[in-house]
Design a protein around this nucleic acid. Structure first.
Lengths: 201, 201
DNA sequence: TCCGGTCTGGACTGCACGGTCCACACTAGC
DNA sequence: GCTAGTGTGGACCGTGCAGTCCAGACCGGA
């Protein structure tokens, strides 16, 4: 099974992309294997050939794909948080990305469905959180080195808080349809970096 | 159909509670009508008698039930954000609540499954967000009146950001299993209220 | 004590959808 | 051009589960 022809790899990729697209459009619950099949002009046997674990394996692959996408869509700004304008540019990029995406969050959709049953789904999310947070924290450290952020601020904790705000903002957007909360959370998080740091109560 | 005997109301309530409990335990995907039936010692006809819309209507009722629960579980602290220790007490209550709840978030679980198909599910979440945010904002205003928070801070926007942080913190906890992000978000949000407000850059 | 309603039990239906199987086609290497 | 492996098509199967239906129990009012 490890021998994948160029043609085979292409088919596998086609199935994956088709599944991801269909899920983006209709959600996981409304996506059957037959839907994916007809959309990608493939057959059952092919799907099970490339994803022997069936539906679950396919969904997991989609989750991984979408998770990677999340970070990629923030490039290059996410890796260059070296000045306040850069932070602002990143903030705008994030807001724009999710505004475009609309109400659907494929990753959340997929992971809620695989749910806490599958350790695999948890792993995908945990890994995404870890990487995302690490990149933000790196930006914070850079600003500390540049003397722009108080050295007493814990970069990882600040990044965690900021990331939580983003996640929640997106989650709320999925229901309400507007990005107010996302923007408020990002703005507050960044403002807190500027003014912030621990202060005697 | 609007005539509900005391007995009938009790049965309806039993079904609802049973469904909610089963979902909390196993998640929506792993909850069938038959599960609910056997757990509550009722029959198909009863379920469809009280929830003519079937599964969907039942799920929506559970969502409403859980949404109310979310706010109730924060009482009385949520309504008494009138001093810094009170904010801290509320913060602890929220963290404790979600720590207890563990990885499952029944509301998110239900709404993701009903998904964006049902406008009803969206309405439930939107309404919850609205009420929650309003209560936090009221607390902020109170602190402003007491001179503890800068008057230039927009209470609604601050509440929105804080709420987003909570949501995201909980969401991340569902995958990672720990409350670090939730705590970080809450602490940052409250810290920002104390130090915060707009400040010349 | 009857009579309308509400409440209850559970057998039955229908089918959507995940998953299996087998036969055939294509490709590549020798 | 033989042959072993990979790729492909699609009929077929099993079943889990939402939803229907009807017969009968229970209950409250007159």
């Amino acid at each position: 099974m490890r021998a994948l022809t160029r043609k085979g790899a292409a088919t596998r990729q086609r199935i994956l992309a088709g599944a991801a697209a269909h899920i983006r459009e209709f959600g996981v619950g409304a996506t059957t294997l037959d839907d994916v099949l007809s959309r990608t002009a493939t057959s059952k046997s092919q799907l099970f050939h490339y994803f022997p674990g069936g539906r679950e394996e396919l969904l997991l692959a989609v989750a991984r794909y979408e998770a990677d996408q999340v970070l990629e869509d923030q490039r290059p700004q996410l890796g260059e948080l070296t000045s306040w304008p850069a932070w602002q540019a990143w903030r705008d990029k994030v807001v724009d990305r999710y505004r475009r995406q609309g109400r659907l969050c494929p990753l959340n959709s997929v992971t809620s469905h695989l749910g806490n049953r599958t350790p695999g789904a948890q792993a995908v999310v945990t890994e995404l959180v870890r990487r995302w947070q690490a990149e933000i924290a790196a930006g914070v450290r850079h600003m500390q080195d540049a003397g722009e952020i108080d050295r007493d601020l814990d970069p990882d904790r600040a990044a965690a808080a900021l990331l939580a705000g983003i996640q929640g903002g997106v989650l709320i957007q999925m229901s309400t349809g507007d990005t107010t909360h996302l923007e408020a959370a990002l703005d507050m998080g960044i403002a807190h970096l500027r003014t912030g740091g621990p202060r005697p109560s």
